[in-house]
């Protein structure tokens, strides 16, 4: 098996464990390359269908191309897409730095969604190589009743024997892409011909390497106009993937505070 085959098989197995063990279940879809590849894996796991709702945590700050991509793919793939409007920034922890505070709107939106739909499981397309606190995640990551991540007391997770039971009133985050790297996702997107938001491809010397909301994300300098060129770029770059994400660089602990509070 190639590395991509192995990653794919493992992710499909994780998605199936989630589906058969955790209910009700939903998946977050930001329309970025990772969660779109994940959606593709869901369809592989369930032979063409997506057996749970797909949710966009909407701050109404996504770029227009992103919304257009959502509508197009929802139609083409016949998806049950739910738009969860996130509460305003004033509801976020006001002691967080500004961009982090803006990002925390998604935490609040997710919390409201989970409470209303009584979700026991939320599938999220984060990866360990993106960010150093995400590197500490579990595949099945239990959350406290308020959605918080108790990073200092995570349970053991051994081999592929996942602990899928969820305490009453709580939920588990399921992370099927944890072992994938950025370049793995691109190679897979290319191999499987998965659609992407065109903003990832360079125009006029700029492209989005990591696609976030327009108020807190900036494009990077790049001439990579095809996926092949993106892969070549990633093989040599020494810039981190989330360099364009303002909130990651506001303070040493900003992202950790965001994630322990329940952010993805």
């Amino acid at each position: 098996m190639t590395l991509l085959d192995e990653l794919e098989a493992r992710s499909i197995a994780i998605l199936r464990e989630a589906y058969f063990r955790v209910s009700p279940l939903a998946m977050l879809w930001s329309m970025g390359k990772d969660s779109t590849a994940l959606l593709w894996l869901v369809r592989k796991a369930f032979l063409g269908s997506v057996p749970f709702p797909v949710v966009l945590l909407d701050t109404e700050m996504e770029l227009p191309e992103v919304y257009a991509f959502r509508d197009e793919l929802a139609r083409a793939w016949n998806l049950d897409v739910r738009n969860e409007l996130c509460p305003p920034e004033t509801s976020s922890d006001q002691t967080l730095p500004p961009a982090t505070r803006a990002a925390a709107r998604k935490t609040a939106g997710l919390r409201a969604l989970i409470a209303r739909e009584k979700l026991r499981g939320v599938i999220v397309g984060i990866r360990r190589d993106e960010q150093s606190t995400r590197a500490k995640e579990r595949v099945f990551s239990p959350r406290l009743p308020d959605g918080a991540w108790d990073v200092k007391h995570q349970p053991a997770e051994l081999w592929d024997v996942y602990h899928t039971d969820v305490a009453d009133g709580q939920h588990v985050r399921i992370h099927p892409l944890l072992d994938w790297t950025e370049v793995d996702v691109w190679r897979y997107t290319q191999r499987e011909e998965i659609p992407i938001v065109p903003l990832y491809l360079a125009r006029d010397g700029k492209r989005y390497r990591s696609l976030g909301e327009k108020n807190i994300t900036v494009p990077i300098d790049s001439n990579a106009a095809t996926i092949d060129e993106i892969i070549a770029e990633l093989e040599t770059t020494r810039q981190p993937e989330r360099a364009g994400r303002v909130m990651d660089h506001e303070s040493e602990d900003a992202f950790e505070r965001l994630r322990t509070g329940g952010y993805m």
Binding site: K136, V151, K152
Partner: peptide, 23 residues
């Protein structure tokens, strides 16, 4: 590089496992 958590840096001890890719 690896001990990214505030509590890990405060105590200079690794609390939880992490991973990092080396090409």
């Amino acid at each position: 590089v690896l001990d990214a958590l505030q509590s890990e840096r405060d105590q200079a001890v690794t609390i939880d496992t992490t991973r990092i890719w080396m090409r």
